[in-house]
């Protein structure tokens, strides 16, 4: 199955693109996907522990099982607002 992986802010700068198309086996979890992406882009490794994850525009935990066509997002800690 294929999923889209969106990257934002510092992660986008590290990887160099806003979005990746990723192929993975049926039944794989979000955590396994993130491990594979981090393996492919080792400069993300230092961010692994502070990374927030979303599937289809909602925060998600690593044990979520992905489905074909899901929109995954790797989110740096948020910093909206003003200070």
């Amino acid at each position: 199955m294929r999923v889209q992986v969106k990257l934002f802010a510092s992660y986008r700068e590290v990887v160099g693109v806003r979005q990746l198309a990723w192929t993975l086996r049926d039944g794989e979890t979000l955590g396994a996907l993130v491990d594979a992406v981090v393996d492919a882009y080792p400069r993300l490794r230092g961010h692994r522990d502070t990374m927030f994850l979303a599937v289809n525009r909602a925060y998600a935990q690593p044990d979520v099982v992905l489905r074909d066509g899901d929109e995954v997002a790797l989110l740096p800690p948020v910093s909206g607002g003003f200070e």
Binding site: F8, A9, S10, L75, V78, S79, G80, G81
Partner: peptide, 14 residues
């Protein structure tokens, strides 16, 4: 609400 905006809304600043 402002605390929550800074905590959970996916917006980043530089």
């Amino acid at each position: 609400a402002m605390d929550e905006v800074k905590r959970v809304v996916p917006i980043w600043k530089q």
